[in-house]
């Protein structure tokens, strides 16, 4: 099938979302809660595009590009006046919620409108509730964090705000967070995340941290690899292999 994005005729497959087609064709649509490997939820509303169709009698609508399935002849505008207004309002609201987040500010600048018009909530939080961390944790099979409560007070947290039992300290939540809200404190021997303290497995060779003990146990139990893979750091592994190669070679 063919669809039209910003006037360009583009081929698309049934079942694809507007965002997928746009990404494949290098047409930029900003996103905050989208991730290629995770299910889309349509929470951030930044990927809003305007759609219409020649058979719709002039009717237009704003939809999220990440979720809307393409259909033959769909006409999409990624930066119409209505799109910019909606996106601008969303980013404005996020700037008021997380005034310290650079990512949000950059995105707002890019949209062409930066004016914090709303009451700022300066509690230091950079969380925009995109739930990427929750979905990443779910993908790891841990479900250690989730959304708690609802409305404006909704938070991302472990169950009962206690040390998350299921957390293995992999840090995927922090790595995926678009605004850098989730804090991880690493020392040479320990990691602290979600108020839970982990001990690192120390490299058998040099004592450098390899991964947390819980993460090692998780990996042994869930990934089909020998347990001794997780005992040494990369540098020591390489060094060992290098001398092994040297011996074999000579």
């Amino acid at each position: 099938m063919y669809i039209y994005i910003d006037g360009k005729k583009i081929s698309a497959k049934d079942g694809e979302s507007i965002l997928e087609v746009a990404n494949r064709n290098e047409i930029y649509i900003p996103t905050l809660c989208h991730h290629e490997a995770l299910d889309d939820v349509g929470a951030c509303r930044v990927c809003m595009v305007e759609i219409t169709h020649k058979d719709w009698g002039g009717w237009r609508n704003l939809v999220t590009a990440c979720l809307y399935p393409v259909e033959e002849g769909l006409v999409i505008s990624t930066s119409s006046e209505a799109v910019r207004r909606s996106r601008g309002t969303t980013l404005d609201l996020l700037m008021a919620r997380c005034p310290t987040s650079d990512v949000i500010r950059w995105m707002a600048e890019e949209n062409g409108e930066i004016s914090v018009r709303y009451e700022q909530i300066d509690d230091g939080s950079k969380c925009i509730m995109c739930s990427l961390c929750v979905r990443a944790c779910e993908r790891m099979g841990c479900n250690a964090i989730g959304t708690v409560g609802r409305g404006h007070d909704k938070k991302i947290a472990p169950p009962f705000f206690e040390n998350p039992e299921n957390c293995i300290g992999c840090g995927a939540c922090a790595a995926i967070c678009p605004t850098g809200h989730i804090e991880v404190n690493d020392t040479r021997t320990t990691r602290e995340i979600w108020d839970k303290k982990f001990n690192f497995v120390a490299c058998e060779g040099c004592g450098e941290p390899v991964l947390t003990e819980e993460y090692r146990d998780y990996a042994i139990a869930n990934r089909d690899l020998p347990a001794d893979y997780y005992t040494t750091c990369s540098a020591c592994k390489k060094k060992k292999l290098a001398s092994h190669f040297d011996k074999v070679g000579s």
Partner: peptide, 15 residues
Amino acid sequence: MEESCGKCVPCREGV
């Protein structure tokens, strides 16, 4: 505001 599920930005922050 209290009953919004808090998932999407316009409803959660806008209201």
